[in-house]
Amino acid sequence: MIFSLAVYGSPYTYQSSDSAYQFARELLNQGHEIYRIFFYHDGVYNANRLTIPPQDEINISSRWSSFAGENNIELVVCVASALRRGVLDDSESRRYEKDTHNIEQNFTLSGLGQLIDAGIVSDRLVTFGS
């Protein structure tokens, strides 16, 4: 089956991104396809590569990034939610003349239409809210 996930929770504050990750890993174990993981609301903070958890804690953004890289999964961050919260890629950073960008590898900024598209294309859309 084709699945997409929606993640709304900020990492390190809510469990939702951890639950989504466990669920996503199990989807692949069972041979399902993940069409897209969409980050909305405070979920966009999952894409912040500047997070520095203590050494004995998991780095949530790089965990997503390696998971996506190894399994060729699309991680899409809602651009409007992200810009409000200061999660920028190189082109948005230039456009708004900021001094840096901070989006983690394998995440891309795109519109909310990508969430609707995920709902249309996927057999199941599973939301992990906060």
Binding site: G111, L112, G113, L115, I116, G119, I120
Partner: peptide, 8 residues
């Protein structure tokens, strides 16, 4: 999300 969905 409602406004976006309504387009599709």
């Amino acid at each position: 999300a409602v406004l976006m969905a309504s387009a599709f």
